[in-house]
Design a protein around this nucleic acid. Structure first.
Lengths: 321, 321
DNA sequence: TTGAAAGCGCTAACAG
DNA sequence: CTGTTAGCGCTTTCAA
């Protein structure tokens, strides 16, 4: 590895001058600067990040802690965050708890390695998160934690839009297939749905704790745990929605003719087939990183809601009744 | 941040002894050791990784470079790698090129930050990769690069199994929907398919450059760019396969009664619906990291093939003719 | 405009 | 068994 000293010697200057020529060019004579810079490039100088971090106290990295790397919901958030970070010459230290140590432990283990952290931890306690925030600049995602800045996908509001879409199509009794964790956000979504549909003179049949897989939808299509007057179903996962669509059609039920199906997330690969709710997750990731980089020491502790957008697909239609 | 010196002072010993008490406990008197360790825990000591890296020359991190974070094929590889790394107290520096700088540039920017790198770069030149390998311990995935250790999903062999499965069901003329990049691995897959199906007295109709989305499958179902005697289609992506299944059924074609559908990848969320090819990608990621950690300076430059497994689903059946 | 020197926090020789 | 010392490679006062 070529060190600063090697370049300095080759250029016939001191380490100090070489260092300045690279990081504070304006403080160095033009010709010296150019000589150093040329030599640095030619010799393939690579400043040792550890040495720099030791002195400056900053690593240039941001930690991102997620429950799972394979969950298609988190991936776009990470992608957006990563992108924003790379743009600013930063690096992403990504850790997934995925059945291993919890998110809090992971974050702690990254304490000195990063300048801050972006945390997605649906199950961690608020106290733990707050304590973490006192040890390093922190931003949480999809959670509300007092005194900690947050970026939240506004799916409750989105579900409201979705319900309005359905009631406008004439649906009154609506099924809702909820998430596996019974998270507080899911409760907010259900509440929002009930509020809207009740206003339209209908009701919501809730089925909880479903795994986000096609098979879940197929099973639900077979069992039909909803009232017989349910003409539309919202599922929190596109895979469940797809399974419902396929399963109902297999049983001779016309989708969307007889039953409408919608997803509360958005699967890009599903294209225009499913009516769904798209949250600009890359943007969410970018915004979170941006907040962390702008105010590295202590980002303002407020909640930024990212609005969801209704994507009308071919899986919802006028209620036939 | 609590430093080693703080703990040392509190324990009434030198920094050296404190350091040893933590990293080489056997070299320290029992009572001293315990005092230091207790204090370290109580005070929340957090050894500065930069200082340690500066001295040892090792960062404890591994870089993972992928084309995209949202591609469901890469995610399990990263997850497995991450897991293996976390188990050994390592950290993952993940970078995605995703339309930004190329994989090679990303790897270079991480040179001093990691002890080695795991590279997924389907489009980078072999020379660039080899040069990178000379600058840091490197393992490539799903590529063959002379003199660089590689871990490759053996999908060509898997496609052979898939074809055998189909010919045994009586299919002779088979459609193949290829990947978007026209990668060398895709060519190997097609070659393997042709070899097998020709041996059975049939043939393969290839359609190339498809986007891995449902809509692609729906479109193909409508256009049917294959010969009219094609009774089975293999798609490189489960989403395309799903689209085909849904699209064909919408047009009144029975799947799998009249046409069988199979995927060359495996989408866990699709459950038992699709006949597909499962490569243990987490394992692949784990193995790659393990190789990098075991021989950090220069892993043996050989190719490790990870075998694919045929998963029989409900989308393939006996050819009706 | 440049150089000498100190020091970031840690670890490992080397003495004692 | 423990302490003293030197130094990893960089940046930045402080003087010249």
């Amino acid at each position: 590895m070529v060190r600063l000293e090697d370049v300095a010697r080759a250029a016939g200057v001191s380490k100090a001058t070489a260092s300045r020529a690279l990081s504070r060019p304006d403080l160095v004579a033009v010709e010296t600067r150019e000589r150093v810079q040329r030599l640095a490039a030619e010799m393939g100088l690579n400043l040792n990040p550890a040495a720099r971090a030791l002195f400056t106290g900053r690593t240039g990295a941001l930690a991102m802690i997620v429950p799972s790397l394979t969950n298609p919901y988190f991936a776009p958030i990470l992608a957006g965050a990563q992108q924003e970070l790379t743009t600013g010459n930063g690096h992403a230290l990504i850790a997934a708890s995925d059945g291993g140590p919890g998110e809090i432990e992971l974050a702690q283990s990254l304490l000195g390695h990063a300048d801050g952290a972006l945390l997605i931890a649906p199950r961690a306690s608020e106290d733990d998160i707050r304590q973490l925030a006192s040890r390093m600049p922190l931003v949480v995602i999809d959670r509300h934690v007092r005194d900690v800045p947050a970026f939240v996908a506004d799916t409750p509001r989105g579900v409201g839009q979705l319900v309005t879409h359905l009631t406008e199509l004439g649906h009154r009794r609506i099924g809702y297939v909820g998430g596996p964790d019974g998270s507080s956000l899911d409760r907010l979504r259900i509440a929002a749905a009930k509020r809207r549909v009740t206003a339209a003179g209908g009701g919501v049949d809730v089925v909880g704790s479903a795994t986000p897989e096609l098979d879940t939808g197929l099973r639900l299509a077979a069992q039909w745990p909803f009232g017989s007057d349910v003409t539309a179903v919202m599922a929190y996962s596109s895979f469940i929605a797809l399974g419902l669509l396929i399963g109902l059609r297999e049983r001779g039920v016309d989708v969307p003719g007889e039953v409408s199906i919608a997803a509360v997330d958005h699967l890009a690969a599903a294209g225009g087939l499913l009516t769904s709710l798209r949250v600009p997750l890359e943007e969410l990731g970018r915004a979170a990183v941006s907040a962390l980089r702008t105010a590295p020491t202590a980002p303002a502790a407020r909640v930024t809601k990212i609005r969801a957008e209704l994507v009308e697909g071919r899986s919802t239609a006028v209620a036939r009744r």
